[in-house]
Write a protein that binds this DNA or RNA. Structure first.
Length: 139
DNA sequence: GCCAACGTTGGC
DNA sequence: GCCAACGTTGGC
């Protein structure tokens, strides 16, 4: 199983909206970046990810699971763009802020730190453990 | 609201 | 195929 990070502006698609979809989940659509799309193509059902709020909050606020592998993005006719479906698993009681991530030397190489603009990112198993630790949950 | 970083586009 | 111009994103 691999780990990922999904970034969203809460004003566009928030964790609360994701939670409201419950086990039905939702398409992670609207991605128009090749790197991000390529990562989604690598995802398998059962992979886990962090749900990150950019802009106002700048924190990991929840854990999600991939429930459908890459398929055409329903928000466009352009067949270059694909997306996966994800569902909320559980919230992070104490959000892990960007500030906390930047302050932890074990997370210096996280894509979130190195390439903050990428909206879908891989997370290493080690980084997953560390961030879960900061969030006070077991990986 | 500003600005830096980055990706994409289009002219040559 | 290169590179300048432009648009978008996200942190501050």
């Amino acid at each position: 199983m691999r780990y990922w990070l999904f970034k969203s502006e809460p004003s566009t698609w928030s964790w609360d909206q994701q939670v409201a979809k419950a086990d039905d989940g939702e398409e992670w659509d609207g991605v128009r970046n090749y790197q991000a799309r390529n990562f989604m193509r690598e995802m398998k059902v059962g992979d886990r990810g962090f749900f990150y709020h950019s802009q106002t909050e700048k924190a990991v606020v929840g854990i999600v699971e991939v429930i459908a592998e890459a398929h055409p993005d329903s928000t466009t006719d352009d067949d270059r763009w694909e997306c996966v479906d994800i569902k909320a698993l559980w919230p992070v009681e104490a959000p892990v802020t960007l500030e906390m991530i930047k302050a932890d030397p074990r997370l210096d190489d996280m894509v979130l730190v190195k390439n903050s603009r990428l909206s879908v990112q891989p997370v290493t198993a080690e980084e997953w453990k560390v961030v879960c630790g900061l969030a006070g949950i077991s990986p």
